[in-house]
Amino acid sequence: MTECNPLHAAHYPDQARCTTVPIVENGPLARDTHRVRIQCPEIARTLVPGQFVMMRLAGFNDPLIGRALAVYDTFPDAVSQPAGIDVVYMVKGKFTHRLAECRPGQLLDVWGPLGNGFEAKAVDHLILVAGGIGQTPFVTVAQEALGHRQYGTPPRSNARCGRVTLCYGARSADMLAGVGDFEQLGVDVQLATEDGSRGHRGLVTDVLAGVLRGSHGSRRILCCGPERMMQAVAGVAAQHETPCEVSLESPMACGIGICFSCVVKLDDGQGGWDYRRTCVEGPVFDAAKIRW
């Protein structure tokens, strides 16, 4: 491990690489949701759960700026070494529409892995809460917490958790993406849809409250999704006196700390607040420190 950069969060790995790499596969996973597989062994080898990459179409000036995307998981080569990454994305803007049309072989500029990611901590019950496309950083978390995979160079400890639950909310059943991937890992998946087409009819916070009532021992909540949903989850976590970390999706222009776009209001520990950069000090923050 290289010496830690004092401008970054304490456990920021500082192993980012800039690469121009080919798409291996790209196709739909659910409604408006696609998965792209990218050949990038250097990034895959050093990635830890909760980190993200910046991505753009190589050689094009429109769209110009890279997009920050969570890494869904790494995939292995023939000798079981990390060969690249899968990214699951929702098709909603200029970049993701273009990306959805890309075929294998198309080159992408990818830089990463970036951000602090989730620390590995052993607890009795790890509760993952996702809204919209916010399930994407949690596959690697579940892999690690349930002892299936290790990540990082050198590989970091698994920090095994007794039980892992995913509370996952979306608008409708056809927008739920990757539920089978979580179930296969042994994650207890609790779904909510706004239209009731699958799982609980209503909000994911209702599901979370139920899970917390039936949970015992040491607990930890990790949350990713729309800001209002994360704020609500932070509120439920506080009511149940459960530690909660959120992974923010602040709009970014560089992902590497040089543009100061992606700021979030954070408690400065002295009764005030300061804008802090999500990309290098996050994207994972203690929910209690965020001024929503």
Partner: peptide, 13 residues
């Protein structure tokens, strides 16, 4: 200025 942070952010790249 303003496009390179305080430079240290870029020392690994």
């Amino acid at each position: 200025s303003g496009t390179f942070g305080y430079a240290r952010e870029m020392e690994h790249l």
